[in-house]
């Protein structure tokens, strides 16, 4: 993963606030955002929308061999979440017991540290999800 600061900075609206896009032509919503509608292509009409952060677990796993920088978190849960508005996204599911995870369970977005660039680099915040109580 790129350690560049700008890589994170330019995605802050999406990573903090789930700002995606919608094609006014066909009505499909996109998160992560797309600037080109795969259905309408050039004739699409893309606008920004903010997703609610409410959704359901579509699939999930508990990662025992962690990604770089997440050794302290293992094992950690990651899931593909179906947002109520339609799109699916990949996110960690936090503050839960592994046995509480299941396909179809309701989740909502939370604001967390996603990755920290060592002792002196920037802190990259963003969405994660937790089970809706």
């Amino acid at each position: 993963m790129s350690k560049g600061v700008a890589v994170h900075w330019r995605l802050i609206p999406q990573r903090y606030n789930l700002i995606g896009t919608e094609c006014k032509g066909c009505g499909q919503k996109f998160f992560p955002p797309r600037q080109l509608c795969p259905n309408c292509r050039r004739s699409g009409n893309i606008t920004e929308i903010t997703f609610s952060g409410e959704g359901k677990i579509y699939s999930y796993t508990l990662i025992h061999v962690p990604s770089e920088g997440l050794g302290f978190m293992k094992p950690y849960a990651i899931g593909i979440i179906r947002l109520d508005e339609g799109p699916l996204l990949t996110a960690q599911i936090v503050d839960c017991k592994p046995e509480d995870l299941a396909i179809g369970k309701r989740v909502n977005s939370v604001f967390r540290k996603v990755i920290v660039d060592g002792d002196s680099g920037i802190i990259r915040y963003g969405y994660k999800f937790k089970l809706t109580e």
């Binding site: 939370v110 604001f111 967390r112 540290k113 802190i123 915040y125 994660k128």
Partner: peptide
Amino acid sequence: PSLDEDTATIAVECAR
């Protein structure tokens, strides 16, 4: 706090 929480994440949650 959880491993991935700090003052900023707590501040954001209560601000929201």
